[in-house]
């Protein structure tokens, strides 16, 4: 269980998130909002890459508000950034190995599972990550997170810059990962339509504040439009 209480954070003196409170159970929890709403900032704050200026983050009963970023994978937290999410000078296999230090299974067991889930990565395992297409890079970033055997994945706009056809495949894979591994997913996205197909609950951010927090089934589209200022 992830509990976020009255969270504020930002960059230097600029506060982006203000007084955010929510909880995430074992589900796909979507974070939506227009550009600049604070989705990526929220995920980076949860991954401890941006310091918390106020409030608390609690993960599985532990206060991680002041924990350094590097301590989170050992606690089952994996983060996939929106951009620059692969090590371009390392091969696909090396990228995956960098993420394999945590968890009880062996590296080879994890690799076999990843190559089964994403056969295209198996074909390209000796290729430099920097030479992959955008979609393949995104696959690799998600796979590397899975190599950590996480309990929760913080997934920041995985569909950004991908072709519509590949977006469909990617969302199918996210859904498949959720079903197979029962891992909690916090998914920040721009693509509201696709996100609502797979998410259990939605948090809509507007100018760094919680505008809406509801199960997808109870969502009123008018409220969503308002959050996007449409």
């Amino acid at each position: 269980m992830l509990n976020v209480t009255r969270l504020s954070s930002g960059y230097g003196e600029v506060n982006v998130l203000n007084d955010i409170t929510f909880s995430v159970g074992n589900e796909i929890f979507a974070v939506l909002g227009a550009n600049g709403a604070g989705k990526s900032t929220l995920l980076k704050t949860l991954a401890k890459l941006i310091p918390v200026t106020q409030g608390h983050i609690e993960w599985q009963g532990r206060d991680i508000t002041r924990a350094p970023a590097y301590s989170l994978p050992a606690q089952g937290v994996a983060y996939v950034p929106q951009e620059h999410n692969v090590f371009s000078d390392l091969s696909v296999a090396e990228n995956l190995s960098v993420g394999a230090l945590t968890g009880s299974r062996t590296r080879d067991e994890k690799l076999d599972e990843i190559y089964e889930l994403f056969p295209r990565l198996a074909d390209r395992k000796d290729q430099f990550a920097g030479s992959l297409s955008g979609g393949e890079g995104q696959m690799l970033a998600v796979s590397r997170a899975l190599m950590q055997d996480p309990s929760i994945i913080l997934l920041d706009e995985p569909s950004a810059g991908l072709s519509p056809l590949f977006v469909d495949t990617l969302f199918e894979k996210i859904s498949e990962i959720r079903q197979q591994k029962s891992v909690t997913i916090v998914l920040a996205e721009q693509n509201a339509t696709k996100t609502m197909e797979i998410a259990d609950r939605l948090l809509v951010l507007s100018l760094g504040e919680v505008h809406l927090l509801k199960p997808v089934k109870e969502l009123d589209m008018k409220q969503l439009m308002e959050a996007y200022h449409i």
Binding site: L72, P73, P81, F87, T102
Partner: peptide, 12 residues
Amino acid sequence: DNEELAASLGKD
């Protein structure tokens, strides 16, 4: 390559 990403993977 990417220090922030390396940190998020559990590396000090």
